[in-house]
Design a protein around this nucleic acid. Structure first.
Lengths: 139, 139
DNA sequence: TATTGACCTTCCATCAGGTGGAACCCCTAT
DNA sequence: ATAGGGGTTCCACCTGATGGAAGGTCAATA
């Protein structure tokens, strides 16, 4: 099976699959003409990777998940641990974004958005210097 | 004022401030010895940038915000528009992460996390191929 | 048989937004 | 004079791809 078919089945661009070969995530055979030749088990991997990436797993996580996937002696606790760490990363990211959102929404709300130059958004961005200095001293 | 002092006041690493000069966000003068010499208005910019970046604004957004900040003829609506677009980006990102979180939490929940190899997480990552193919046909 | 067009190949550059480190200069205090 | 803590430049690296050029391959058609 050629890369185009694998791309279609996995939903990933061929370019990305080539990249995954580059970094050692998939290792298709080669046909006589130099084309990548994906065996059945090679065909599944890009799809697996696409799913894992869609859940936010890093490439290194993907590498480990794939290793576990192919390891008959794995334990589900190994897999679960990777997933829990990822869940935690997501939670922290959401918390960070939620805080950003609150601050920004507050500023947007306070801004008249009219023809005048006065703007609480710019004022806020500009005025925090003293606080930063204080924080740095304190921390 | 030298870069070290500016770094302390802005809370940014000196390295980052040099990078910001590289990409044209700040333009400090130079002393006779080649050191960057920050005037008052140069000192405020890195802090401004640090704040804006902390709210998730892209470097290009920062460039525009800085331009508006220094433009006496700006209108607050110009600023507000940039901020609203950013707010929207944050909202979409949060939505994306929330969905990822739900899926992943569901899988983690379903996984025994014990010594056995059976794992719903891996099963889910592996088993979606047909769905993907169907989706691609449909879409 | 020639040619078209859709595949495939490699390689190199680019993106965001910095960070790390090497090699070297400058300034002040001891 | 020498040690340290500044500063400087430049180049490489990180994540996770993506774009594009230059060229090889293959199947169908004219």
């Amino acid at each position: 099976m050629n890369i185009g078919d694998v791309a279609e089945r996995s939903g990933l661009p061929a370019k990305t699959i080539r990249y995954y070969e580059d970094i050692g995530l998939v290792k298709p055979l080669r046909s006589a003409n130099g084309y990548r030749s994906f065996r059945d088990r090679d065909v599944h991997k890009p799809a697996f990777l696409g799913r894992a990436r869609a859940l936010g797993f890093s490439i290194e996580d993907c590498r480990n998940l794939l290793k576990l996937y192919e390891d008959d002696d794995r334990t589900s606790s190994e897999v679960k641990q990777i997933a829990e760490v990822q869940l935690d990363r997501i939670d922290r990211k959401i918390a960070e974004l939620t805080e950003m959102r609150a601050t920004l929404a507050h500023l947007v709300d306070a801004c008249a958005g009219d023809h005048r130059p006065d703007c609480p958004i710019l004022a806020d961005l500009a005025a925090k210097e003293e606080e930063i200095a204080l924080l740095n001293e304190a921390g």
